[in-house]
Design a protein around this nucleic acid. Structure first.
Lengths: 237, 237
DNA sequence: CAGTGGTCTAGACCACCTG
DNA sequence: AGGTGGTCTAGACCACTGC
């Protein structure tokens, strides 16, 4: 059994409360027996859930459920936009497209530090406002490299772009770098967020790479400081 | 050979430019041969460096160095204070202790959501201002649970508390949860950061757990919005 | 000291990229 | 087709926790 499938199965059982009375899972030996998986598969799945902060392991003792697992936050590790980020709570996501155009790399308003592309490289440039339950949540300024993302139109951009890239264009995502900071809002972004110039904003600069290491998208995201909190889990090594 | 030791060895070779001409590492088979490690040890070490964003792997192709790896940022995954976070750049860290006192849990100014402790639980409460190259960088409001952190004094708190807990008290750290958001500054914190009331601030609420899952510390950190940028690396699953 | 998770070995086969 | 990384097997032993 592939470990991804086993992760889902295990996650279901955990979420259905199968292990709630103990607050911990059975030992690895018992899990191996009851799910009929090998230790490799089991530990790979457990490691995934540990990374996500749902479980923790104590050597010599057992595998424990995290109590008070965080809900209702956007997870900084989820790199695929609001739709999947907001799982755990049911919220209505709306998207307003401010603009969609093709530009050349040399005309981009901002560029990731150290990124070298030919000045004539064609990029899609998308500005969107996204709302959660009717409240302005984030303004996105996103660039997509056209040689890797060959087609975007208004209709696609009104939905989840990443969903389209994954399911339709069949891009294989690899990893993302993010820079997080706080700024004062410009008038342009403040208007969209229904805030005032110089109000605070949480800014995330996001660089997204395919599994082959090629950058296909970079974005600057301005979050409404009152409507957005992010969560992350880290191991202390 | 333990994989932690091998990580260090491999990291040294990478940082010394041993693999720069190719931009990639040799294949796993070659690495196994040249470093005399087993595939398990090799892949565990590689996985660690991939998680940190220093390498990426492409199935069927190879193990590549990340170019333009980020330097000069604070890594959100590093959970052990400024001293180790700021590696990569040499900056002078100063610490000014604003206050150090023992309080009861019921008198704490803030409490992590869902945390249940007896109201009489004794906590150390530490307020510190930390400066980088003489510039105010972060104001920390930190609580330590005395039953797990039995002793703190002014001298310790002027240094790296985590270093003390790790090396002297021999606590074994496990994991940390963080919530990241933006707020407007209160007058009290603004004064310490040499900013004005209502200026933006990046806030991180940090909960730190021992390897046995016990919470030993939680903090609210107010970062100077002009002097602090954070970096993180994520895999897109 | 019994039982648990962590590391390690030595293989095999699969999935994917590249020439 | 050959070579690369990804998954998987079936063990063994080590390190730690808790009774």
């Amino acid at each position: 059994m592939k470990y991804e499938a086993f992760v889902e199965l295990l996650e279901q059982d955990i979420n259905n409360g199968r292990y709630d009375q103990d607050g911990k899972l059975p030992s690895e030996d018992v899990l191996i027996e009851s799910y009929q998986v090998t230790r490799y598969t089991l530990r790979k799945a457990i490691a995934f859930l540990v990374e996500r902060g749902q479980l923790y392991q104590v050597q010599g003792s057992g595998i424990y459920l995290r109590r008070r697992a965080k809900k209702g936050y956007f997870n900084l590790d989820d790199t695929q936009g609001i739709t999947s980020e907001s799982r755990g709570i049911n919220q209505n996501v709306e998207t307003k497209v401010v603009s969609l155009e093709e530009i050349q790399f040399k005309d981009a308003a901002f560029v990731p530090e150290g990124l070298s592309l030919s000045p004539e490289t064609i990029l899609y440039f998308v500005k969107r406002l996204r709302l959660l339950d009717g409240k302005p949540f984030v303004v996105e300024h996103s660039y997509y490299i056209k040689s890797l993302v060959p087609y975007l139109n208004h209709e696609i951009v009104e939905q989840s772009i990443f969903h389209y890239l994954k399911e339709v264009v069949k891009l294989k995502f690899g990893f993302a770098d993010k820079i997080i900071r706080t700024e004062k809002l410009t008038q342009e972004v403040a208007t969209l967020l229904e805030l005032k110039k110089d109000d605070p904003t949480l800014v995330i600069i996001d660089e997204a790479y395919l599994s082959n290491g090629a950058l296909f998208n970079y974005s600057k995201l301005y979050y409404h400081y009152e409507n957005s909190e992010f969560f992350m889990h880290a191991t202390m090594k």
